[in-house]
Design a protein around this nucleic acid. Structure first.
Lengths: 199, 199
DNA sequence: CACTAACCGGACCGGCCGGTCAACTTGGTA
DNA sequence: TACCAAGTTGACCGGCCGGTCCGGTTAGTG
C-alpha cells in the first residue's frame, strides 16, 4: 500500500453508492448482472465503475471481502459467547441474512485467485473453525464435522430456498434449521468421504 | 403431437451425440457453455444444434426432462421397496450422481415455463412425495418435512461439494449424509417458516 | 478567487454468443 | 439407379457486455 491518500468527497460517496447498487443488482440477477446496469442503478457513469474497480471481478471481490470481513468480526466476537451452540447458530443466521441472493459464491471461482479475497476467506475460515471447535467441545456439534464443512454449508440454505419462485423471505431459515439438526451429534451416522481442505 | 414420423438414422444419432456433448459441456462450464462448443464437442455443425433444438433453452430442457423422467421411473420403482428409509436414500443418491455438475437447476428458471419441463417436474415431485410419505410412516423421516423440502434439498449436496476446487469426486456423499441425518426424526427441533408449495 | 489534480461520463471498440439461412450432402424409397 | 425430402453446414447478423479513453466538470487548496 504505497500511496493511500484519502479519496475526494464525491469519489468516496460514489464508491459507496456503487457497492450498494452492485450488491442489489447481483442479488436480483446473479453474478452476470451487467456493469452498465449497476452504474445506472448507482446513478453514475459506466466509466466511474471502472475507475473505482479496474475489473468487474474486482468489484465482486470488494463486495465479497466486505462481507467476509464483517462475518469474521462477528465470528470472532461470538467465540466469547457463553452458549457455543447458540453462537454457531447465530453466526450461520447472520451469514445467511447477509446474502439473500443466490449464487454470490464465497469461493468466487474467478476472483478467488486475487490474494485479498483469499486472505479474507482464510480469516473467516479460521473464525468458523474456532466456532466449530467450541461447539464440538460443548457437545453441540458432531465429532466428524470440521470447520470446513460448516463453512461450505453456510451457503446452502439460501441456495436451496432460492429455487422457490415466490418463496417466503424466511424460507431459508427452514433449511438452516434442517442443516443444524444434521450437524448435531444426536442421530449422527458416520460420514463418508473425508472432510475437504480449503487452503 | 400431430406429426411424429421417425427421425432419419443420421439425425437420430446426431441428436444423441448432441445431448451427451451438451451434458458434458454444461457439467464443465455451467449453463453458459456456448452452443458453438457443444456443437464442436459433438462433432457437428452449429446449425445442426438449432435444427434439433430451436433454442438453447430447449436443449437444456431436453436434458432436464430426460433426467427427471429417469428419476421419476426410479422413484416410482423404489416406492415398492421394503425399506422405506433406504429407498429414500437410494433415490437421493441416484439424483446426486446423475448430476455431478453444479448449477443445472431443476427448476431451470427460464425453461421452467415450457410445459414439458413443468410436467416432468410435477411427475418427479409426485414420486418424491410418495417416497417421503412412506419414509415418514416408517419413522425414517421427521414429521414436519414435506416432499417439496426433500425435492429442494436434492440439489444441495452437489452444490455444496461443487465449491471445493480439487474435491474428491465422492465429497457430495458427505453432505448427502449430513442432510439425511437432519431429515431423520431423532434430534429434530421444530422448523421455522412453512414448507414451500412447488406447483 | 484561481488553479489543478482528481474525478466523472458516455461514446466507442473488439469480441463473443444465440440464432438464421441458403447452398450443399445424404438417407431412404420406388 | 434416380430422385427428393430430410438433414447438415458454416458464414453471417444483430445485440450485448466488459473495458477504454478523452473532453469536460469539480472538489479542495493557497
Amino acid at each position: 500500500m504505497p500511496d493511500t491518500r484519502p479519496l475526494r468527497a464525491d469519489a468516496a460517496r460514489n464508491r459507496g453508492l456503487l457497492l450498494a447498487a452492485a450488491a442489489d443488482e447481483f442479488a436480483e440477477h446473479g453474478l452476470d448482472a451487467s456493469v452498465t446496469d449497476i452504474a445506472r442503478r448507482a446513478g453514475v457513469g459506466k466509466g466511474t465503475v471502472f475507475r473505482h474497480f479496474p475489473t468487474k471481478d474486482d468489484l465482486i471481490a470488494a463486495i465479497l471481502i466486505d462481507r467476509m470481513e464483517a462475518l469474521s468480526d462477528l465470528g470472532e466476537r461470538l467465540c466469547e459467547a457463553a452458549d457455543a451452540g447458540e453462537a454457531l447458530r447465530e453466526f450461520l443466521t447472520a451469514a445467511a441474512m447477509q446474502r439473500q441472493e443466490r449464487d454470490l459464491s464465497f469461493l468466487a471461482e474467478a476472483s478467488a485467485s486475487l490474494n485479498e479475497v483469499g486472505r479474507a476467506r482464510d480469516r473467516m475460515l479460521a473464525a468458523v473453525d474456532a466456532l466449530a471447535d467450541r461447539a464440538r467441545e460443548h457437545g453441540m456439534l458432531r465429532d466428524d464435522v470440521t470447520g470446513a464443512d460448516v463453512f461450505l454449508l453456510m451457503c446452502a440454505p439460501n441456495y436451496v430456498a432460492g429455487y422457490v419462485p415466490d418463496a417466503s423471505p424466511d424460507l431459508w431459515r427452514r433449511y438452516l434449521q434442517l442443516i443444524l439438526d444434521g450437524l448435531r451429534p444426536e442421530g449422527a451416522r458416520p460420514l463418508p468421504a473425508t472432510a475437504p481442505r480449503l487452503n
